[in-house]
């Protein structure tokens, strides 16, 4: 049943990562994404790997869940890796030469790092944000971080309110979709067979009622909100006030340290880092 789908990927918990301020996590995520794209040497990737491992361990999310999160993109990963392997032309002799297919060492290195980069990116961001932050505190965090934009007239509060309401109504609308589908099936509607055009047409009896009822809901919700004195963010206070704690600053310090390290690794003269990479790579894959 569709209503069984859990919303988002949030796993409630009490780990150090769960307890961080959502703003800290958002900022660390940004830093992490930058770090991932800065990395271009084995040493940098190794540091990234260590960082992600630390995050996963600190979040107390099981490895099984983490692996499950990578599953959906596995084909994309394989595809891009293959393209990299076959399309990269190296300088030396190809490792394998078969008709027009020539595989160079550089291709393998590139494919490996590309895949590694994507995997680390996904694990890192999901552990920092989606797995450990409830949608509502994520919204609060975004609103708070973007609040300086209010000064230049960006309706930050409105966006945050829209996000909250969307999150609130997604399960309701899923339930409703199921209900209307069943009602139309009971009148002989067929959603699952026939040509593409026929199927698209079959959606009309589902979509129109869904729109009509969504508008009705929106209307009623607006009145209910007005009755509860909603007037935008004018004069509004909040039950939950985000506040940074000492541990947030500790994590910030880690973040800054880490990103400096990544920048350092990036600007170390190419030939040094290059030769280190080569040796490390040779060591890892060809000497064993």
């Amino acid at each position: 049943m569709i209503s069984d789908i859990t919303l988002g990927q949030f796993f409630p918990g009490n780990s150090p990562i769960h307890k961080l301020d959502p703003r800290t996590k958002l900022l660390l995520t940004v830093a992490f994404i930058v770090a991932v794209f800065l990395a271009n040497s084995p040493l940098a990737f190794f540091s990234l790997f260590l960082a992600v491992l630390t995050l996963v361990l600190a979040s107390q999310i099981s490895f099984k869940v983490i692996l499950k999160g990578i599953k959906p993109i596995i084909y994309v990963l394989i595809f891009t890796a293959l393209i990299n392997i076959f399309m990269t032309r190296g300088e030396g002799e190809p490792l394998i030469s078969f008709y027009i297919i020539k595989i160079y060492k550089e291709g393998i290195i590139r494919a490996f790092f590309m895949a590694f980069r994507v995997i680390l990116l996904i694990i890192g961001t999901s552990v920092l944000l989606t797995y450990t932050t409830s949608p509502i505190s994520l919204t609060d965090g975004i609103e708070s971080l973007l609040s300086p934009l209010k000064k230049i007239g960006v309706p930050v509060h409105v966006f945050a309110m829209m996000m909250t309401i969307a999150l609130r109504f997604i399960p309701t609308l899923i339930e409703e979709t199921e209900k209307i589908m069943n009602a139309q099936k009971s009148r002989g509607a067929d959603f699952s067979s026939g040509s593409l055009i026929k199927r698209a047409k079959a959606l009309i009896p589902l979509l129109i009622p869904l729109f009509v009822s969504s508008f009705k809901r929106a209307d009623e919700l607006a009145i209910a909100m007005e009755c509860r004195c909603y007037r935008g963010d004018k004069n509004r206070t909040k039950l939950v006030k985000l506040s940074y704690k000492p541990k947030d600053f500790l994590w910030f310090a880690f973040g800054i340290l880490f990103i400096s390290l990544m920048i350092a690794l990036r600007i170390i003269p190419q030939h040094i880092s290059g030769s280190i990479s080569e040796e490390l790579f040779n060591f890892l894959f060809f000497k064993i």
Partner: peptide, 30 residues
């Protein structure tokens, strides 16, 4: 489903056609 007709709770939410006539005729048309 044509032989066992089911009217769900608050069935007015299932209406979609331009006219009442068309809506009542939806199932017979199917």
């Amino acid at each position: 489903r044509y032989r066992v007709g089911l009217v769900m709770q608050y069935p007015e939410y299932q209406l979609f056609d331009e006219t009442v006539r068309g809506d009542i005729g939806f199932a017979p048309r199917n």
